[in-house]
């Protein structure tokens, strides 16, 4: 795709009257130059935008097909938003929303004003925090072995059984242990997410990541996003400290990431007519 004229790149939307300094300066990423972020007003809404210019010979398609360049562009999108998110309720655009000109932005905001205001209302005063729980099944299994009588009994039986019977008892022990591990993981996840209700406005479960992605030796058992009121951040952290303290001995580990722009709670696709697409 060749784009000769500058486009208007959109990062997010705020209510008019929101006051916060926008990140300064322009940035060139592999021939794509994003101008200094600015506010573009449309009625009671304002879009955070910048002018995007492509250097001669640079095509957006080619940039996006190069994983390194694409990542730079995504990071830029995110960094503009993250500068604002701790103090301002920003409705984030998904990466890659661009308009031909300012008028295009204004029309899109005008046509979708009601839905956008509702979406801002959903995240107003809150930020997104990622919550992950990992489990080391071996550690959990060892802990359960000492606490579940059926497992202890099977281990005792195996120790005194002949080799043939011990073979089948070991299979039964393995099956029982796996079942107990699975149940313990479910209990931990359910208990944690249940307790979140007191400090979290909304919880959005996400896809679990494989070990090769998260890079840990343990298994991810929860990957969710929490929409937390700014005033409840400390309570949210304390709750998870308590959960971690309770479950760490069983091989569970908790990780919080953020604060994120509330991407996970701004998941709406709007049509040009103002209706959900």
């Amino acid at each position: 795709m060749s784009v000769l004229q500058p486009m208007v790149y959109a990062y997010g939307i705020v209510r008019l009257g929101s006051t916060a300094g926008l990140p300064g300066g322009s940035i060139d990423l592999a021939g794509a130059t994003f101008g200094r972020p600015r506010l573009l007003l449309s009625g009671s809404l304002a879009a955070i935008v910048s002018d995007l210019r492509l250097s001669k010979g640079v095509s957006l398609d080619a940039l996006l097909r190069n994983s390194r360049h694409a990542e730079q562009l995504v990071l830029h999108h995110h960094r503009v938003l993250e500068e604002l998110v701790e103090t301002l309720s920003v409705l984030p655009f998904r990466f890659g929303v661009m308009f031909k000109d300012d008028q295009g932005v204004a029309v899109a905001l005008e046509q979708n004003r009601k839905a956008l205001l509702e979406a801002i209302g959903r995240i107003d005063g809150a930020t997104e925090w990622g919550l992950k729980i990992y489990c080391a099944p071996d550690q959990l299994g060892r802990r359960l072995a000492g606490e579940i009588p059926a497992i202890t009994e099977l281990e005792t039986d195996i120790a005194s059984a002949d080799e043939g019977k011990a073979f089948f008892l070991r299979k039964r022990l393995k099956s029982l242990t796996e079942k107990e591990i699975e149940q313990a993981i479910t209990r931990c996840v359910n208990y944690t997410t249940g307790r979140l209700d007191t400090v979290v406005r909304e919880f959005a479960p996400g896809k679990l990541q494989p070990a090769e992605m998260h890079g840990r030796g343990s298994e991810m058992v929860l990957n969710g996003a929490c929409l937390v009121d700014r005033g409840l951040k400390e309570g949210f952290f304390q709750l998870l400290e308590d959960m971690f303290a309770a479950y760490a001995g069983f091989g569970f580990d908790y990780e919080i990431t953020g604060p994120w722009p509330p991407y996970s709670f701004a998941d709406c696709q709007l049509g040009g007519s103002g209706r959900a697409a």
Partner: peptide
């Protein structure tokens, strides 16, 4: 985590 959010979530306005 960033890619999961910025590429899959967030508002999209289709013109």
């Amino acid at each position: 985590d960033l890619l999961d959010r910025a590429l899959n979530k967030g508002v999209v306005i289709w013109g």
